[in-house]
């Protein structure tokens, strides 16, 4: 599953998924530390197997001098439909905003209405649906739409990449 290029897009798609499947969807935030892999000099790769422990020691020594880099991966996953939405960042400046957006995404998770006015127009639908049962198919449709929208994210990203190429060409002139 590809990562979304922007956090906004990830939030929007996660919101739709949570609205469709509020009970089973979960959001996992993974904060991981990793020392950047050093490129081994050619002599190290061609060294004899007998020397490898020493080489390993030396690489360990160099890696310990380098500070670990952190990364933050946000993943929305619904095990029932198998939808996975991911976003990755390594910028400290984004942490606060992303966690705040987790709070925003907790609203559909808790069953609270969205703070925007758009959902207010939707609010009467369940009230009608409760009596006639006509509301439920509509809800299912919206769920299908939410799940169906997910693959559209990938072409959008591809479009962004091709846009980058265009920019490069301009620079050449």
């Amino acid at each position: 599953m590809p990562y979304y290029a922007t956090s906004q897009e990830w939030i929007r798609q996660s919101q739709l998924l949570l609205e469709a499947r509020p009970t089973t969807t979960r959001i996992t935030t993974k904060y991981s530390l990793k020392v950047p892999q050093m490129r081994k000099p050619k002599t190290a790769s061609s060294s004899k197997p007998a020397l490898t422990p020493a080489a390993a020691e030396s690489t360990a020594a160099t890696s310990s001098s380098k500070p670990a880099r952190g990364s933050l991966i946000l993943k929305t996953y619904d095990p029932v439909s198998g939808v996975t939405l991911k976003y990755k960042t390594s910028k400290a400046a984004e942490v606060s905003r992303l966690i705040q957006s987790l709070g925003k995404l907790s609203r559909p998770m808790a069953g609270l209405p969205e703070l925007k006015d758009e959902v207010m127009t939707d609010a009467p639908v369940p009230a009608e649906g409760g009596g006639s049962g006509a509301g439920t198919p509509a809800v299912e449709k919206s769920e299908a739409a939410a799940v169906g929208q997910k693959p559209q994210g990938a072409p959008a990203q591809a479009g962004g990449a091709s846009g980058g190429k265009g920019k490069k060409k301009k620079g050449k002139k």
Partner: peptide, 9 residues
Amino acid sequence: SRGSIFLTQ
């Protein structure tokens, strides 16, 4: 130098 923390909701 390594490790992960998982936060789930």
